[in-house]
Amino acid sequence: MIEIQNLHKYFDVHHVLKGIDLTVEKGEVLSIIGSSGSGKSTLLYCINGLEAIQQGEVIVDGVSVHDKGADLNRIRQNLGMVFQQWNSFPHLTALENVALAPRIVKKLSKAESLAIAEQQLKHVGLADKLDAYPSSLSGGQQQRLAISRALAMEPEYMLFDEATSALDPELVGEVLETMRMLAEEGMTMICVTHEMGFARDVSDRVAYFHDGVMEEIGTPDQIFGTPVSQHTQKFLANVR
């Protein structure tokens, strides 16, 4: 379970997250929508401790992420993250991309980490690309590589930050398909997304962010059918 309590985040004087309260249960798929600059990416970075917070708490499976003594490197293993810019490591093959962290972070043997990597690449449909370098993969393939790299750490949670926004339109589908598959397998997911179809079909709940505030959260039917906040209504009218 991920529990976020009264989370405040500043960049200098810029108040970017203004008291977020949010709980995500095991097995849940939460989509976060909202306009540019509303703090969606920043929230994800605060969840896995890539950004410091100024007030409040983030608790993952009972461990407070921003506590002084928190073992961030351990916590992050449990929180896979996929970024908007597919960040495959260009100097490593697909197999090495995925096998590296299991080997040097989890200290698995070379054989074990390669076996896991191969299995995860197959999982996302890249079985025939094991020895390919990222430069020879399409954007969609690189993004699936990034997903399998995160999965190889066997996380219980996955955080997606607009995983499809930087892709050519014809490549969006394959990545969404992969995310859909994970959701069906029961992965707990927080997906920042602009794909309203995905948010509506796949999520258990949808949250709408506006200017550092979580204005509204509910089932897809509630948010897309009968949004309460004016900002949500306006936002949805514009994306349709």
Partner: peptide, 21 residues
Amino acid sequence: PENQYRAARSLGMTAFQATTR
């Protein structure tokens, strides 16, 4: 890109591992 470092850290690598690897 800064994101290469961030991606490495997000996998649980230490600052040293992310920098050297």
